[in-house]
Amino acid sequence: MDAGTRFALLALLILGAVIACAKPLGKYIADVMEGRATFASRLGGPFERLIYRLCGTDPAQEMTWSHYAIALLLFNLLGALVIYGLQRLQLWLPLNPQHLAAVSADSAFNTAVAFVTNTDWQGYSGESTMSYLTQMAGLTVQNYLSAATGLSVAVVLIRGFIRHSTDRIGNFWVDVTRSSLYLLLPLSIVLALVLVGQGVIQNFESYETATTIEKLTFDNPKTDPDGNAIKDDKGNAVTESATTQAQTLPMGPVASQESIKELGTNGGGFFNANSSHPYENPTTLSNVLEIAAIFLIPFALTYTFGRMVGDTRQGWALMAAMLVLFAVLAATAFVSEQGGNPLFAQHGVDSQATAMQSGGNMEGKETRFGIAASALFAAATTATSCGAVNGMHDSMTPIGGFVPLFLMQLGELTPGGVGTGIYTILIFAILGVFIAGLMIGRTPEYLGKKIQAREMKLASIFILTTPMVVLVGTAIGVVTLGGKAGVSNPGAHGFSEILYGFTSAGNNNGSAFAGLSANTEFYNLALGIAMWLGRFWPIVAALAIGGSLASKKRIPVTEGTMPTHGPLFISLLIGTILLIGVLNYVPALALGPVVEHFMLFQGH
């Protein structure tokens, strides 16, 4: 079987399984979010009511969109403060067998924002920075709550289409409780148990030490008595040469974090190497399950949308647009990676795939996964807001690296993150019908709601906030000393590293071109601000659109209504997404991966 066939079969297997689950899971999510009785709600009902009682919440009392938005913002601020406090105080708190030092203030700020925004950008190395308590009570808890926040926003936007002539769009506390309790928690428990079966670790042990056969000489960072790295005048870590035969094997409660990391499209790894670490992703099967878990809820939400608006064809149409875009870009990444580095041939290196070798570009990839599963993982993690990696994106070919970058820049809607994917593509759908309305001279409408000036102003805020954050952030990064100091590969690739960093932060993805040294005061602050604005400004706009639509009357379908479930609408939607993505980012992409591609094939 050739490499291309292997890639196609792997993609079909995973996407086929996910799409097969979309209908039952999508129906279940609709039942949960609309308060219908399910097996889980009958089991967890008393606990759900206890949560409301403890929080002093009346679940029957619905909110206006602005009340909902402020509740959401305060809830997430509280989450950020908890993570920040846990990191700063972890040395004095339990479950820290390695006695890891308090995290620095700038890194703690960055990580706190990263995990409440579902970005999970990691400037730190988990195994040498975070105590078990911080990982579990801080980071893992936020993996649930940030995914539940995204799902809540999606449901509000969908309610905007269902309801009419009302200013009430739901209760944030109810939405976030139900989605955590009845969807994310049960799925994560099941996946964690399966991953443990594959060899993912789950314990509270101190780190193990193994004796290696060969001696290893390495540069060891110097630390002060508190365990903090000592830096020179330029901010670089001071190191000393050391030799060892001891290898430290990190331990910890990994599986419980790993499952929600994928299912919640969070992506923050327990270890620095993320899903390329054998304790996070040990086997071919665990790799397939992790990719499927990333896709599971975002694709199912298209069916949830169709079911809630009473026409499942609407959901299938959105899914079709997502699949077309994803398939083309994922295949591009694979072809580029399997094509490999053209300079290798000049040095007599055989890069052809044979029965004995994978061929292509294997730099930065795990041999147990190979090119097909690594390219597919890279595309999956950036087509959603996940950001987990099973290989190093910095080592991909220029076009291979362009694909994850562009998938994020499209807005992460193929299928996008938990909740974020469906609400992002719905806003592109609103924009699409608006453009179509302008072309044919009719008042645009979508699912029985007129799309008017207010919705378009809000959609503009939604769509333009992220490119503004990404491009302004990148511009600041390339002209300031702090920004340039983190680049390990100057030139076009270095530009791509900064662009990737801000793209990942602004779109709340969290994956990184590993070449960027981001644990500096500049990047911790700049990316922290980018993550917050890239998350909550679009959320506010989406909630406002939901509120605005809910307040309108429903208009009947007539012969002049454009069908929004057929090939014409799907093409229009794909065209709108591509047009916005290309217009926003082509100049920046031309300076990074595109230049690098031409330089590589010119022999530089």
Partner: peptide, 30 residues
């Protein structure tokens, strides 16, 4: 340092609440 970063966090929150209040002033269509 904690004061600086917590202040930035609250400033981001206030800027976002400002956006909520700003959007409420955008006129309604009927």
């Amino acid at each position: 340092m904690d004061v600086i970063y917590l202040t930035i966090l609250f400033a981001l929150l206030l800027a976002t609440i400002g956006l909520v209040l700003g959007i409420e002033r955008i006129g309604e269509d009927r």
